[in-house]
Design a binder for these strands. Structure first.
Length: 497
RNA sequence: GGCCCUAUCGUCUAGCGGUCUAGGACGCCAGGUUUUCAUCCUGGUAACCGGGGUUCGAGUCCCCGUAGGGUCACCA
């Protein structure tokens, strides 16, 4: 049997980061077993449809490296993969269910419906409509006369519905608690409950991953599978990612939750994936007492290691600091050329600064610059910021900083003058143009003014980069080039006059 | 409120009856390296929700309590 998993998002807005985690688990199980990962769009709620969200779901997959084998734009033999395009299929099964006596036409709407529903809610049992037992012929007459209707499933009474969940274990429900759920809405579209069952069956899905919020609706699907005479695939109800602030489902309130937004902020998709996979899953690796455990996993390693049995039931809190740490690790350890390309792409896609972009695209030494700053950055954004001084001369340098509190202000121009003369004497083309050689000379200058070496370095740093924090100074200067350094020192000097 | 699920350092987690004086990671703190900020080393801080059982023995099994989450739609 080939393993087939699917992600079934609703196009109702930005794709949530939790969706990526679910996708990761689906994808991993499919790929581990050389099966297929399918993307299906559940857009049966036309009111909540948001323009552009299908495109975004596709884009998120592409960026995060999760490639569907089937789905919208990917094709496949089980399409269409967008539910509104499968309307007739659901209708056929819904009516079939009525014929078989497992569902019924219901004509209850408005206040009447609401009042009855409230009664059942108060009683604490599942909703049952008075039309449940109306003879089918009578119901059909009403329909023929143009009455509006929905189709509800006929939930059996007094029955224990139990099944074993792949992550939650054995779960038992009382059928009296399960409502006669609407499966076909009055507009002719199915509700989720019917649509998933039909599609998962028709698309030959073998393992269903979804959030625990679906757990209590599972008996409805179990019933539907039974009514339709189909075998139900194993279900895996995944924990909910919790918000660190509210303790409830992760929401925008505490920060970014959109998968695309993380990328826009400068996160590396591989790092986000790594963080996500470990939220509720831990690798089955033998651990020696006291030995450091591995935290970094590539997608391929994850696929290899993944097994649903290692999924946790309890809900993890989304720890942004740890995500940041993962990102930093990925930036630090990434191949420099690859990283440089990503920097350019990021600026191209998410920064309006076209000027900077053209600098980056034409810089033959970009890779060296990236290399210089890569182990000090958390985000791609930081990387861009750290190297931007190469392309932009400092303006309005602030000399009154605590790092220079021991240096008399009137001494600064003197030092700069010395520095300038000193560097001017080097030939950029000779073997003298090496930062190791400057270092000694600059230390000598500091000694001459009886100041700390670090202070002299700081003055140089400020005049050239404009900031008290910079990448390793000498390597950076070497990359900047002699002419540029000297002219930056000169303009710093001018600001003193 | 009914029903379902969960409960180990602040957070992510390992643990699947004895090897637990409970391990790792993030964070935080201290020290070292260092021209800034980082990186990098070294060390430290910090947890089995409470109460009953079962057992020779419980973080690990059972029950109750407590706390948290989910769910009760013509939304998915």
């Amino acid at each position: 049997m080939t393993v087939r998993t699917r992600l079934a998002p609703s196009p109702t807005g930005s794709m949530h980061i939790g969706g990526v985690r679910t996708a990761l688990y689906c994808y991993a199980l499919a790929k581990k077993n050389e099966g297929q990962y399918i993307l299906r769009i559940e857009d049966t709620d036309t009111k909540r449809f948001v323009e552009g969200s299908i495109e975004e779901i596709l884009k998120v997959h592409e960026i995060y490296g999760i490639k569907p084998d089937e789905g919208p734009t990917y094709g496949g033999n089980y399409g269409p993969y967008i539910q509104t395009q499968r309307k007739e299929i659901y209708q056929k099964y819904a009516h079939e269910l009525v014929e078989k006596g497992h569902a019924y036409y219901c004509f209850l709407f408005g206040d009447e419906l609401e009042n009855l529903q409230n009664e059942f809610l108060k009683k604490g049992t599942g909703f049952r409509s008075p039309y449940r037992d109306m003879p089918i012929e009578e119901a059909k007459q009403k329909i023929d006369s143009g009455e509006k209707y929905v189709i509800r499933m006929k939930t059996p009474n007094n029955e224990k519905i139990e099944y074993t969940d792949g992550v939650q274990g054995k779960v038992v429900f009382d059928s009296n608690m399960v409502s006669d759920q609407i499966i076909l809405k009055s507009n002719g579209l199915p509700t989720y409950h019917l649509a998933v069952v039909v599609d998962d069956h028709l698309m030959e899905i073998t393992h269903v991953f979804r959030g625990v919020e679906w757990l209590t609706s599972t008996p409805k699907q179990i019933l539907l599978y039974r009514f339709l005479g189909w075998e139900m695939p194993p279900f895996y109800h995944l924990s909910t990612i919790l918000d660190p602030d509210t303790g409830k489902k992760l929401s925008k309130r505490s920060g970014t939750v959109s998968a695309m937004e993380f990328i826009r902020e400068g996160y590396i998709p591989e790092a986000v994936n790594n963080f996500l996979m470990l939220l509720g899953w831990s690798p089955p690796i033998e651990r020696a007492h006291g030995e450091k455990e591995r935290e970094i996993f590539t997608l391929d390693e994850f696929i290899e290691l993944f097994d649903p049995k290692d999924l946790n039931k309890s809900n993890p809190v989304f720890n942004r600091q740890k995500l940041l740490w993962f990102n930093k690790e990925y930036i630090k350890n990434m191949n420099t050329l690859d990283l440089a390309n990503r920097v350019v792409d990021w600026v191209k896609n998410y920064l309006p600064d076209r000027n900077l972009l053209s600098h980056l695209e034409t810089d033959p030494n970009l890779e060296d610059k990236v290399k210089l700053v890569k182990d000090r950055c958390y985000l791609i954004k930081d990387l861009v910021e750290s190297i931007s001084f190469f392309y932009h001369r400092p303006e309005n340098i602030v000399w009154e900083i605590k790092q220079l509190k021991n240096v008399p202000r009137n001494q600064i121009p003197q030092i700069l003058e010395e520095l300038k003369n000193f560097l001017t004497d080097f030939s950029e083309n000779s073997s003298d143009w090496l930062h190791e050689k400057w270092e000694k000379g600059i230390r000598n200058i500091a000694d001459k003014f009886t100041m700390k070496h670090g202070d002299a370095f700081m003055i140089l740093r400020l005049s050239v980069t404009g900031k008290p924090v910079s990448p390793p100074l000498f390597e950076a200067l070497q990359l900047l080039g002699k002419q540029e350094i000297i002219s930056r020192i000169e303009s710093a000097l001018k600001s003193f006059k």
